[in-house]
């Protein structure tokens, strides 16, 4: 952070002499401490999962959902400033509904992302607003099959096979890189998502977490975005934790190698 104090980071929409927009970079910092979110696109659907950090035992278990539905076929998960995430989702819903009211058809995922990219980018252009403090992962199924996108505070927005953000993103990404997305089936992906979140939780180990997983699949949800049923979630959790010992050993080995 060598540029702190030079004054170019005090207002949104201002470039520094070397062409950076610091407020956007700082917004990214807000994301980097949040609970880990991931998305997996497989051949027959999309899975979203999030590590929900439990700050108090007074919180009601199973409530305070973090994954939201934009339209029947599209879901969103995000890391960062949660209220900003709700703002983002509300906009996404408005876009989806306005598209439908004009074209009498559900919006396609790429088109929605196009619109949302423009919206988020707008919040980097004026000093009267601040950029979104979230990175969102959007997944859904449309006529062209499953889609997965990730959108950043800068408004940049890319398609992914596997996406991760939040505190444990590095660990999650290295796990996601191991998957074979051409062959992966959605039920397997749900389990893997649970496992990756479990592994990514290493970065936040002092706190408990709750696992939330949703999916969109032609076969299992009729193309709708829904939370996975309880039995599948339990199965996934078990899978995530069962080879804990094994994993720890592997990791230790890995650590040694790094050193």
């Amino acid at each position: 952070m060598t540029s702190i104090g030079t004054g170019y980071d005090l207002s949104n929409s201002v470039f520094s002499p070397d062409g950076r927009n610091f407020q956007v970079e700082y917004a990214m910092k807000a994301v980097e401490n949040g609970g880990t979110s991931i998305g997996i696109k497989c051949k027959d659907g999309v899975v979203l999962a999030v590590e929900k950090i439990i700050n108090s035992k007074l919180l009601v278990p199973g409530k305070n959902k973090r994954i939201q539905t934009v339209d029947r076929h599209i879901g969103v998960v995000y890391s960062g400033l949660l209220p900003d995430g709700r703002h983002f989702v509300n906009r996404a819903r408005d876009e989806a509904q306005s598209f439908k009211s004009i074209y009498k058809n559900s919006i396609s995922v790429p088109h929605l992302m196009d619109r949302l990219g423009i919206y988020v980018q707008n919040y980097t252009c004026y000093n009267s607003v601040r950029p979104f403090g979230i990175v969102s992962i959007v997944g859904g199924i449309d006529d062209n099959g499953p889609h997965l996108y990730m959108i950043e505070p800068s408004g940049s927005c890319w398609g992914y096979s596997g996406a991760a953000t939040g505190k444990g993103r590095q660990l999650a990404k290295s796990e996601l890189e191991k998957l074979n997305y051409e062959e992966l089936e959605i039920k397997e992906a749900v389990k893997l998502a649970a496992k990756i979140i479990h592994l990514a939780h290493e970065d936040n180990k002092d706190k408990d977490y709750e696992l939330e997983i949703s999916w969109v699949s032609k076969e299992f949800t009729k193309g709708r975005h829904e939370f996975v049923p309880d039995d599948l979630l339990e199965e996934a959790k078990k899978f995530a934790e069962e080879d804990d010992d094994e994993e720890e050993e592997e990791e230790e080995e890995g650590d040694e190698m790094q050193e």
Binding site: M1, I4, D9, L10, S11, N12, F22, Q23, Y26, A27, M28, K29, A30, V31, E32, N33, N127, S128, V129, R130, P131, G133
Partner: peptide, 8 residues
């Protein structure tokens, strides 16, 4: 409320 600190 529209300015992030360097730590977000």
């Amino acid at each position: 409320s529209v300015t992030y600190s360097p730590t977000g």
